[in-house]
């Protein structure tokens, strides 16, 4: 029963026109980046990871996801979370699900599953397109890390897979918090606005040295540390911290959403 509901949820998300548009937009990112770096030629590059992109196409997926994690991926997660509960309430379909009946906890899990599956799909899609576009435009010879070592293609793919999982987890955690917001309203735009405002405000707060006591609480603080995937050997410290931080957000978001759903009048 639950697998059938999971399947229905994912099919429903994939059938939505804005999902398709969103995925199309996401896929453009690695293509534009590859193209841009290719056009810039040897003089190109840039700060941080961008500096090693030239001739190193396998890094494009990681660079793309790293960049998108700051704004684009949270936006997509918030849209999915917004449509998941607030959108269904708006269309009156949430009532239909509840009298079917789908228990409220089950409903939350269906929504979380949809969010996770679609996030994983979107991130993987970006990574795959990134590998193709990066290799096509910039060429590749294994994967050169930030530490100056060169990994074999297989190891490089493993790194990309690891990064995909890590980024997806961050995205799902943001989405879980957005789901909690989504359970309180019938207006999907409110959810998106609230989520994106929070992400942006967090990033701004992260810039202030005087607020450094606050930084460990902000999910955005964990984003930069994920780049450690591109170091060799991989230092796990920051990656663990970021993932645990996101895990706390996931727990809080899911818990709040559950509390709200259970007590909610529909």
């Amino acid at each position: 029963m639950i697998t059938r509901q999971f399947g229905s949820e994912v099919r429903w998300m994939l059938r939505r026109p804005r999902t398709i548009i969103g995925l199309f937009g996401l896929v453009l990112v690695p293509i534009i980046i590859s193209f841009g770096i290719w056009t810039a030629g040897d003089g190109g590059g840039g700060p941080g990871l961008a500096a090693i992109l030239q001739g190193n196409g396998m890094v494009v997926p990681i660079f793309t996801l790293f960049l998108s994690l700051n704004l684009l991926l949270p936006l997509v997660a918030s849209i999915w979370a917004a449509d998941g509960l607030a959108g269904e309430a708006q269309h009156g379909t949430l009532r239909g699900l509840l009298v079917a009946p789908v228990s409220r906890v089950r409903l939350l899990f269906v929504k979380l599953f949809g969010l996770t599956a679609m996030s994983l799909f979107a991130v993987t899609l970006m990574a795959v397109v990134g590998i193709i576009a990066g290799t096509a435009f910039l060429g590749t010879n294994g994967m050169m890390t930030l530490s100056g070592t060169t990994l074999s293609t297989g190891q490089g793919l493993l790194r990309i897979a690891l990064f995909v999982v890590l980024v997806t987890f961050q995205m799902v955690s943001i989405g879980a918090v957005a789901l909690a917001v989504s359970s309180t309203t019938e207006h999907p735009l409110v959810v998106q606005a609230a989520t994106m405002t929070t992400i942006i405000v967090f990033q701004v707060l992260g810039q202030f040295q005087s607020l450094d006591w606050l930084h460990p609480f902000l999910i955005t603080t964990g984003f930069p540390g994920l780049i450690d995937v591109m170091r060799d050997p991989i230092p796990l410290g920051q990656i663990w911290d970021s993932t645990l931080l996101a895990g706390c957000y996931l727990l809080i978001g899911t818990g709040l959403a559950a509390m709200r759903l259970i007590t909610k009048d529909s």
């Binding site: 059938r15 939505r16 026109p17 269309h91 009156g92 009532r95």
Partner: peptide, 10 residues
């Protein structure tokens, strides 16, 4: 209840 609720894009 309270009018039909369906997804407009389906």
């Amino acid at each position: 209840v309270e009018g039909p609720g369906f997804h407009p894009f389906l």
